[in-house]
Structures are given as C-alpha cells and as structure tokens.
Amino acid sequence: MSGETIRILLTDDHILFREGVAGILEREPDLHVVGQASNGREAVQLAQELNPDVILMDIQMPICTGLEAAQQLLEKQSGLRIVMLTVSDKDQDLFAAIKAGAQGYLLKGSTRAQELVDVVRRVAAGDAIITPALVPQLLSEFAAMKQGGEKPAAPPHADLATASASDDVFNALSDRELEVLHLVAEGLKNREIAESLFISENTVRSHLRNILDKLHVQNRLQAANLIKRT
C-alpha cells in the first residue's frame, strides 16, 4: 500500500483508550482513523460501512468479543487486516486470535506508540506481527501439537515449513473449488462468487467448507493467502 493512506478502525470499549490511540495514529500523514467502535458488533457494522484497511481490536468487550467479531469480519471481508490490541497474554486468547485469522497480536501494556504505528503499516503491507514476549508461547504450543500428531493451523503469511518444495497442496481441490478459491483471493464475497460462477450461495459455502478442510486451514483468509503465494 505504498503511497496510499491506510484506513483504520479502532475497536475498544474504553473511549479514553480509543481517543489516545487515535491521537497517536492521526499524527502520521499516511494513517487515518475512519471510525471507532465500542464492541465487536459495532465493529462488524462499521467495517462494512467504512471499508477500513486495518482494524485494531480489543478482545474482551461487551455484546460481542473481539475474537467473535474477527471471525465474522474475515468471513465477509477476506482482505481485512485485524490486529488484536489487548491486555490478555493468555495462551488461549493468542491461539484463538490466530485461528480466527488475525494478522497481529499486541499487548497494551508493552506496546510503545511508534511500535504501534510501525505494526499498522507492516500489517497493511501484508506482514503478520506478534508481540515478541508471546512468541515463545506460540512456538511451544506448535511444537507440542506436532509431537502429539496434530497439524497446527499456520498463521496468515507463515511459511509452511512442513511442505516440501515439490508438494502441490492444491491437487486435492476440484476445478470448481480452485475457481472459488481464486475468486476468494480476489476479495469477492459469497454472493459475488455465486453470481460470477452462476451457482447458488449455498453451493459456494459448500465449496468453501471443502476447500478449508482439504487445505487444513481455519478460514477463507488463510486459504486466500495460501493461493497467493503460488
């Protein structure tokens, strides 16, 4: 997104915190806060109206949590970049955020203003960022899952270290599923995919379920990122 203004939606139930973060971001000429939400439900609504590039999202909020909102948003708008900005350093919240498709996870208590600015820019450019203090927990969990025979879900933009260079992970997909996946990667919604391929939305959803299962990913964003790397 070089040379373009990055549109940001802030989601946190503490208005003073939101205003403080907005002030930090608005000082940067390439960053613009287009809206603020006080809970996950508002974030879902505003994201559809305002079309932000990056959403900074708290986890624990009333009505609808940040994790629930992230999952809903990425099902509808796969091109969104979501960074969880939270006080929670719990393993389960970190892993749930990754599985939901979040591209970043930062701790409020240890993230400096300039670091936040840099993370927003990097996530908008396609990077995935996790607070350094939590990386050992993430690696330990992945190692434990591997030893237990489970296949951990790769975070967005993570290298698929278990796949050899000659592996073609898309061989299992049918021609129609590949068509659907390419349209997902282009950012089309289910209705738009259905219209493009002259099929029903239910059929699109069925293809997507098969795609996620065959590619061993958690959501459409991870599937789209996988096809983009080929």
Rank of each mutant, 00 (worst) to 15 (best):
E4L: 12
T5F: 02
I6V: 14
R7L: 04
L10T: 00
D13F: 01
R18G: 09
E19G: 05
G20Y: 10
G20F: 10
L25H: 12
E28K: 15
P29A: 13
D30K: 13
L31Y: 06
A37N: 10
N39L: 04
G40M: 08
Q45F: 11
Q48P: 07
E49T: 15
N51Y: 14
V54T: 08
M57G: 13
I59C: 08
Q60V: 13
I63H: 14
C64W: 15
T65L: 11
L73R: 01
L74E: 06
Q77M: 13
Q77V: 12
G79K: 10
I82V: 15
T86D: 00
S88G: 02
K90F: 12
Q92H: 13
L94M: 04
A97R: 02
G101P: 01
G101A: 02
L106W: 02
K108N: 01
S110C: 12
R112P: 02
A113P: 07
Q114E: 15
L116V: 04
V117L: 00
V117T: 06
R121H: 06
R121C: 01
V123H: 00
A124N: 02
A125W: 05
I129M: 11
I130A: 02
I130M: 06
T131Q: 15
P132I: 04
A133Y: 07
L134Q: 03
L139A: 13
S140K: 15
A144T: 13
A153H: 09
P155T: 02
P156E: 02
H157S: 12
A161R: 08
A165V: 06
A165P: 00
S166L: 09
D167S: 09
D168T: 04
V169H: 09
V169A: 10
F170T: 06
S174P: 12
E177Y: 05
E179C: 14
L181A: 09
A185T: 07
G187Y: 08
K189C: 10
R191N: 09
E192P: 01
E192K: 06
E192A: 12
E195A: 11
S196N: 08
F198R: 11
F198T: 07
I199D: 03
E201A: 03
N202C: 05
S206F: 11
L208C: 05
R209N: 11
N210I: 03
I211F: 06
L212N: 03
V217C: 10
N219K: 03
L221V: 03
A223T: 03
A223K: 02
A224S: 07
N225H: 07
L226M: 08
